[in-house]
Simulated scan of single mutants.
Amino acid sequence: MNALSTLVLALAMSTDAFAAAVSKGTTLKNPRFGEALRAGVIFGVIEAITPLIGWALGSVAAKYAEDWDHWIAFTMLCILGLMMIRNAFKQEDQETAPVNRHSFWLLAATGFATSIDAMAVGVSLAFIDNNIIVTAIAIGLATTLMVTIGVLLGRLLGNIAGKRAEIVGGLALIGIGSTILYEHLSTAVV
Rank of each mutant, 00 (worst) to 15 (best):
residue 1 M to Y: 04
residue 2 N to P: 05
residue 2 N to G: 15
residue 3 A to Y: 03
residue 6 T to A: 10
residue 9 L to V: 00
residue 13 M to L: 07
residue 18 F to A: 01
residue 21 A to P: 03
residue 23 S to T: 14
residue 25 G to V: 13
residue 26 T to D: 12
residue 26 T to P: 01
residue 28 L to G: 04
residue 28 L to W: 06
residue 28 L to S: 01
residue 30 N to Y: 08
residue 31 P to W: 03
residue 32 R to I: 12
residue 32 R to Y: 11
residue 33 F to H: 07
residue 34 G to M: 10
residue 37 L to D: 08
residue 40 G to F: 02
residue 40 G to Q: 00
residue 41 V to L: 15
residue 43 F to E: 06
residue 44 G to V: 13
residue 45 V to C: 12
residue 46 I to A: 03
residue 46 I to M: 13
residue 46 I to C: 06
residue 48 A to S: 07
residue 51 P to S: 09
residue 52 L to P: 01
residue 55 W to T: 04
residue 59 S to E: 12
residue 63 K to G: 10
residue 63 K to Y: 10
residue 63 K to V: 12
residue 65 A to G: 05
residue 65 A to N: 09
residue 66 E to M: 14
residue 66 E to R: 12
residue 68 W to G: 07
residue 72 I to W: 00
residue 74 F to D: 09
residue 76 M to P: 10
residue 78 C to F: 06
residue 78 C to Q: 01
residue 78 C to A: 12
residue 80 L to R: 06
residue 82 L to P: 02
residue 83 M to Q: 10
residue 83 M to Y: 07
residue 85 I to G: 00
residue 86 R to K: 15
residue 87 N to R: 11
residue 87 N to C: 00
residue 90 K to V: 14
residue 92 E to N: 09
residue 93 D to H: 11
residue 93 D to L: 11
residue 93 D to G: 07
residue 93 D to Y: 07
residue 94 Q to N: 09
residue 99 V to P: 00
residue 101 R to I: 14
residue 101 R to D: 04
residue 101 R to P: 06
residue 103 S to Q: 01
residue 104 F to W: 03
residue 104 F to D: 06
residue 104 F to M: 04
residue 107 L to D: 00
residue 108 A to Y: 01
residue 108 A to S: 12
residue 108 A to V: 08
residue 109 A to I: 15
residue 113 A to I: 00
residue 114 T to Y: 14
residue 114 T to N: 11
residue 116 I to V: 15
residue 117 D to C: 12
residue 119 M to A: 15
residue 120 A to C: 14
residue 122 G to E: 11
residue 125 L to I: 01
residue 125 L to F: 11
residue 129 D to P: 09
residue 129 D to W: 06
residue 133 I to L: 11
residue 134 V to F: 13
residue 136 A to G: 09
residue 136 A to S: 15
residue 138 A to T: 03
residue 138 A to S: 15
residue 139 I to P: 10
residue 140 G to Y: 13
residue 140 G to A: 05
residue 140 G to F: 14
residue 144 T to A: 15
residue 146 M to C: 14
residue 147 V to M: 09
residue 147 V to Q: 07
residue 149 I to S: 04
residue 150 G to R: 10
residue 151 V to K: 01
residue 152 L to A: 00
residue 153 L to I: 07
residue 158 G to L: 06
residue 159 N to G: 13
residue 163 K to F: 00
residue 163 K to H: 06
residue 165 A to D: 10
residue 165 A to N: 09
residue 166 E to C: 04
residue 172 A to L: 15
residue 172 A to T: 09
residue 173 L to M: 14
residue 173 L to F: 13
residue 173 L to E: 05
residue 175 G to I: 11
residue 176 I to L: 15
residue 178 S to F: 08
residue 178 S to L: 08
residue 178 S to D: 04
residue 178 S to K: 02
residue 179 T to Y: 05
residue 180 I to Q: 06
residue 180 I to G: 10
residue 180 I to P: 15
residue 181 L to W: 08
residue 189 V to S: 12
residue 190 V to N: 10
